[in-house]
């Protein structure tokens, strides 16, 4: 508290307060990663201290991924971003905040872990929700956030669409009709993934919550009393969680090294173990095997396979007046 007071006081007086051998970075992240980074950050801080003898404090800001990207463009001084959406980092690259070739800067196309949209239902699954087509049934209330502001919900949209395509042998009109039916069952679109979780778990609204598998696992654990049940659909979209150093800010602040080290750390076995423990799927096979119970089998398709890549998705689906608008806004 004392250092906080000093820092705040320095801020008030308009002074920079360079404390010796202290690094500070800001990780701007997506909405539901709160608990995850609260667990990861101290481990990194310890490691960084051991390796360099310097202490590091990591600040967190969480919100809808697109909203966060905009804030960074407006001047939110992020050193690193850990998003759930490739397009949101692309926006930063376009704005000159992030290196153009950011996807080559880290392994696995700069995605240290991945997840997929999955379901969480009430105790005993009273509405028998097992797969995407159960969500389109009449009388089922579906909860997920606003796909216009939440990357999480955009994956839900894409997964439902991909399922619709597969069921209808690639008929786009039928797939859109299918997605429209699901959207018509949504009583409330929250701004971010976590607000949707609150709506479902805390306010008791809806029969099924669609969010990242990582969130369904964490919530089922947090609300153990409510006996919420995880349901993994037969097919889903692979959701990469890309990371990047916000070079523009990091170079300015002289935090490029610690920022890179922080993101590298996410690929280390200890970080991957924490990630897997929190129901995020990782590429490390040994750790995946260790937490196999967390990850039921599912057919995963990628945005590249089904939709021809993010640029195309952005243009055809998410842009103003795109397919998403036709199923979402004018339902």
């Amino acid at each position: 508290m004392k250092t906080r007071l000093t820092t705040a006081l320095a801020l008030v007086l308009g002074l920079a307060s360079p404390v010796a051998a202290q690094d500070a970075i800001l990780n701007v992240s997506y909405d539901i990663a709160r608990e995850l980074f609260a667990e990861l950050n101290p481990v990194f801080a310890e490691k960084w201290q051991a390796e360099t003898g310097r202490s590091v404090s990591i600040d967190q800001s969480h919100g809808g991924s697109s909203k966060q990207a905009r804030a960074i463009l407006e001047g939110l001084p992020a050193d690193v971003v850990t998003f759930n959406q490739v397009t949101d980092i692309d926006v930063l690259a376009e704005g000159g905040m992030v290196d153009e070739n950011w996807r080559e800067a880290f392994p696995n196309q700069a995605s240290p872990y991945y997840s997929l949209p999955a379901f969480l239902v009430r105790e005993g699954n009273p509405k028998n929700i097992d797969d995407w087509d159960d969500l389109a049934a009449e009388g089922v209330q579906v909860i997920f956030p606003n796909p216009k502001t939440s990357g999480n919900a955009r994956y839900t949209y894409l997964a439902a669409y991909a399922y619709g395509l597969e069921k209808n042998n690639g008929d786009h009109a039928a797939a859109q009709e299918f997605v429209r039916k699901i959207f018509a069952n949504v009583p409330v679109f929250d701004q971010g993934g976590r607000a949707a979780t609150t709506t479902f778990a805390e306010r008791g609204l809806g029969d099924v919550l669609i969010t990242f598998e990582a969130e369904t696992g964490g919530i089922a654990r947090q609300y153990a009393d409510a006996k919420l049940e995880r349901v993994t659909p037969s097919l889903s979209v692979l959701a990469e969680f890309p990371v990047a150093v916000v070079t523009e800010n990091a170079e300015d602040k002289g935090t490029a090294d610690v920022s890179k080290a922080y993101l590298d750390f996410l690929y280390s076995p200890e970080a991957q173990r924490i990630l897997a423990k929190n129901f995020n799927r990782v590429h490390d096979e040994a750790i995946t095997a260790e937490f196999a119970a967390n990850f039921p089998d599912v057919k995963l398709v990628t945005v590249e396979e089904v939709f021809g890549g993010w640029d195309k998705v952005q243009e055809e689906h998410f842009a103003e007046g795109g397919i998403l608008d036709s199923v979402f806004v004018n339902q």
């Binding site: 800001s61 804030a71 939110l76 607000a195």
Partner: peptide, 24 residues
């Protein structure tokens, strides 16, 4: 505000944040 935890969150914003953290 930018909602940086422990940095730029005022008390009213902290309420929303805690609410979203499921800490009702």
């Amino acid at each position: 505000s930018g909602a940086i935890r422990g940095q730029t969150n005022t008390l009213p914003l902290q309420i929303e944040l805690l609410f979203n953290d499921l800490n009702i």
